[in-house]
């Protein structure tokens, strides 16, 4: 939880002071209604959206473009996405993830073989080779929020603590984008009102 440095000024929020985040996206008409989130855990973690392009430094690793997606009604799981750049000379490995909004988090890989899609847990974690950038994105590697405490609401943000073999623990805020977003800051998609039926 400790060794991270916040690079982007707009992401300068603290858990203790969610009001400070209001400066992040003043132009957007996001709904800041927090009435739905009454559990203590969620209130602590759900803060208004930070800059989606904020970067977080952890040792040799730079984490960026971190986002998740608004959940459909009833959805028990959600995916988390970000990029991890290793500027160091030694390989690292993402071995665990945790979030106050999820009872369990796993690191998954989605793979397509023709029309066939499979999703599997990466039991040994995700290697972050020296000098490379690993993308966790829809259709590939991703974080999996499981046993969600409540819905993820577009425009808010959830904290995820990633554990790297060498760089240790680092907490990144994931902005909650539209349920069908394909990238951080991608909020052009129209939500399908029938999708949950």
């Amino acid at each position: 939880m400790n060794r991270f440095t916040i690079l982007a000024a707009s992401a300068a929020f603290t858990l203790a002071n969610p009001v400070a985040t209001a400066l992040a996206h003043g132009s957007e008409d996001h709904n800041h209604d927090h009435e739905h989130s009454e559990s203590a855990a969620e209130t602590a973690a759900t803060v208004a959206m930070p800059d989606a392009n904020a970067k977080v430094q952890a040792g040799d690793l730079t984490l960026g473009a971190a986002y998740t997606r608004a959940t459909l009604p009833n959805a028990p799981v959600a995916g988390g996405f970000l990029t991890v750049t290793n500027d160091g000379t030694t390989d690292d490995r993402l071995i665990a993830a945790a979030s106050p909004v999820a009872g369990v988090m796993e690191i998954h890989e989605m793979a397509m073989d023709g029309d066939v899609m499979t999703m599997r847990k990466l039991e040994d974690g995700l290697p972050i080779p020296a000098g490379e950038t690993v993308m966790l994105e829809p259709g590939g590697y991703h974080l999996m929020f499981m046993r969600l405490a409540g819905p993820l609401v577009e425009g808010e943000s959830v904290d995820v603590t990633l554990t790297f073999e060498k760089a240790g623990d680092v907490t990144v805020p994931l902005s909650v984008q539209a349920f069908n977003a394909r990238a951080a800051g991608d909020d052009d998609h129209q939500a399908d009102p029938h999708a949950g039926h």
Binding site: M117, T118, M119, R120, M146
Partner: peptide, 10 residues
Amino acid sequence: YEGNVLGARP
């Protein structure tokens, strides 16, 4: 039990 998608195919 967990609700995670295991895979999809035609």
